[in-house]
Nucleic acid binder design. Structure first.
Length: 273
DNA sequence: CACTAATCCTGGACGC
DNA sequence: TGCGTCCAGGATTAGT
């Protein structure tokens, strides 16, 4: 479910409810989601610890404690939210952390149980983040270096955008949307992108993601922000899910293809670059 | 490196 | 109403 804008939305909303709070208890119903740790080990690591910060890196959520970091990934259907303990847990709630004082609960709802939670001690390397690529919204990127890395590949640009070691946080929806914005054929081999094309693509990615964050992310089936409100960016999808409809730029019907076992939506009329 | 398929799962949509 | 099939925002791995 969640790509960068949805994860960013979640982080912004839960952060003020979490920072400074102490975790007093925790429950986990699907041990596999904690692998390689056990529920007992994770509980022992977090109980009594104070939450220092809540941040995002790519699609990962980092909950920094006074003794280490909880690394949460929502995968396809995960939702992370804070609820009052007076509200009963959703049937699909797979993990919960009780917080001191207000009686709030930080909860992971995840019907497909593909999401993950892991704890890394303070001095440990957070290995899943080691190879994560550049943050698309930050302007500190060494553009030439990234261009060189991207154009080293021969695979099509769209599936390459899903590779988290280049741009971090782009998922299946925003990959299609950004390529349409940039007028680039998703089937084009990455190595054949010109420097101006890649520049335009990077700009389009930033614009699409920023706009989606403004809209509170996209809501398809499972995503709602932690306060239960839905994001609305899906109303602005130009190609994703619009197979057969006329392209808003050139009028040619949007087509759906499959690349690397994932759906890609694009316009053959105006994505010829 | 790249392509393909399979895997981890549940549930909603759709066709009959 | 019920059942079978397909599909889904992600990521990893095995085999070719």
């Amino acid at each position: 479910m969640p790509e960068l804008p949805e994860v960013e939305t979640v982080v912004r909303i839960i952060r003020p409810h979490l920072v400074g709070r102490t975790i007093t208890a925790a429950r986990f119903s699907i041990p596999r989601q904690l692998h390689p740790q056990t529920p007992r080990e994770l509980l022992r690591a977090v109980k009594g610890r104070v939450i220092r910060s809540v941040t995002r890196r790519g699609k990962y959520i980092l909950i920094e404690l006074d003794n280490g970091t909880l690394l949460v990934h929502l995968r396809m259907t995960g939702r992370l939210y804070v609820r009052p303990s007076s509200i009963p847990p959703d049937p699909h709630e797979r993990a919960s952390f009780s917080l001191d004082h207000s009686g709030d609960v930080l909860a992971l709802r995840d019907p497909r149980t593909l999401g993950t939670i892991r704890f890394f001690p303070a001095q440990a390397v957070i290995e899943p983040l080691a190879a994560i690529g550049v943050e698309p919204l930050e302007d500190t990127t060494d553009f030439d270096a990234l261009f060189d890395r991207v154009t080293r590949h021969t695979i099509a640009i769209k599936p390459l955008l899903l590779n988290q070691t280049l741009f971090a946080g782009i998922g299946n929806i925003y990959a299609s949307e950004a390529l349409w914005q940039a007028g680039i054929d998703p089937r084009k081999p990455a190595g054949r992108l010109t420097r101006p094309q890649f520049r335009k693509l990077a700009d389009s990615i930033r614009k699409v993601l920023l706009r989606a964050i403004e809209r509170g992310g996209s809501t398809l089936k499972d995503f709602a922000d932690p306060e239960g409100r839905a994001g609305s960016y899906q109303k602005e999808f130009v190609v994703y899910g619009h197979e057969g409809e006329a392209c808003s730029r050139c009028g040619i019907p949007i087509v759906k293809i499959v690349q690397a076992q994932r759906s890609t939506y694009f316009c053959k009329g105006c994505q010829k670059g």
